[in-house]
Design a protein around this nucleic acid. Sequence first.
RNA 1: GGCGGCGUAGCCAAGUGGUAAGGCAGAGCUCUGCAAAAGCUCGACCACCAGUUCAAAUCUGGUCGCCGCCUCCA
Length: 466
Amino acid sequence: MALRFFNSLTRSKELFQPLVPGQAGLYTCGPTVYNYAHIGNFRTFVFEDLLRRALTFRGYRVTQVMNFTDVDDKTIRGSQAAGESLEVFTARYKQAFFEDLDTLRVQRAEVYPAATEHVGEMVELIRRLRERGHTYEDAGSVYFRLSTFPGYGRLANLNPEQMRSSGRVDNDEYEKEDVRDFALWKAWIPEDGPVFWETELGKGRPGWHIECSAMSMKYLGEQFDIHTGGVDNRFPHHENEIAQSCCATGGPFAGTWLHSEFLLVEGKKMSKSLGNFYTLRDLLEKGLDPVAIRYTLLSVHYRAQLNFSFEGIEASAQAVRRLRDLNGRLGRSPAGPGSGDKVWQLTAACETDFTEALDDDLNLAGALGHLFTWVREVNALLDSGSPDAGELERLQAWLNRVDSLLDVLREEQDESAEGRVAELVAQRAAAKQSRDFPAADRLRLEIESLGWVVKDTPQGPVFHRR
RNA sequence: GGCGGCGUAGCCAAGUGGUAAGGCAGAGCUCUGCAAAAGCUCGACCACCAGUUCAAAUCUGGUCGCCGCCUCCA
């Protein structure tokens, strides 16, 4: 068995076969840095985090590239509204984005190229397209002539002939021969203010799609393994990327395309008018545990819509608690006489089932089902006190390996509170020792009022945040 | 008009031909000074209808409901 992915390009599950055995080149469409990213964005970024961790879990060496779109209509408008240069404006949101990634424990990609730093590469790519006859110019802008790429529409499963102009088209200030054509290079207009580049194509700025083609090729090669993004990028963004990339190189582009579904909030598509639009920061302000948010985002298959709800966060927090409790238990359990082959058997079965589910297009929800079955069985074994030192190690090792995917076990340290709580816990232990139970109970209440829980174990009291 | 997805217990969610994983919530029991944690026990005729089949949540057709895409929104 090995990793299989549902490839949007072929709409079927395919065995993952990288260009270079043992290595995986990954291009993940990144944020447009004009605002704090919202929870829907993070659904996709956490999915991509799972993807890279799953590849690593399965032994691949991953090279992930995630772009920053730091020049487009929204960033230009935003910077003007803020009275800042584009650079200053976008730098703030890039910084915030990294902070948010840390909050959600998303592993860093190898490269985060910014569009503004790759205009040269884009111009070069457009030049290649022009040489091959795929472009035309009008009023200083350069467009991709769609009719020169017969494969157009394959990814989105759209037939260009049947594509309907959906009213939204065409309040565009640029002139195109065909509404479906898209801009590779946009001539400067007064609204762009100081944002422009003087290039052999003239004074202007790159179109949106070209940046991903140029930067993916630069860092991953003209052909690479996996390209991902949210479903909304499937069309037109990714479709256009394919068109311009294939036409520029004359060869194939990304082999596998993965798209994560939308996240709904309380059953509705997020929108500011519905009042259900949340940035990660909004949710943290409401007191949500970032690890519970991460777990929630991980626990629904990436191709299914995820309904984000506050009730769901609570359920996730409890599930994480269960894993952490087992983790703590493994750490403090004394070695027993040995379980026969039970530990080995349970764990091997879990490894097989878990990995198989993960291999099947990242079915983490299914994998977690197997994991929790194992958790229950392990707890029962620990209740009986039988696992010996080697077995405890084996259990711990597997839990750690799973956590290399989930990354939920580690608890944030809070030293000041912890010192205080530790003191109360010690006092309570002393009270118990002298059988002063009313005092012990009072101390428990005090500890709980600070947001912590204390529990007595055969190895002494342990405590953790509520 | 074209293309596509979804509907499984109170909530979340696997399973895609052989008599329904798992998590959360709830109830009881064991354990516990009390708790907590843990373990055990308790819950579904898989939207509806009709077919195919020895056998369907899983395949086919239809109905109802919800959702997405068809130019710049992850």
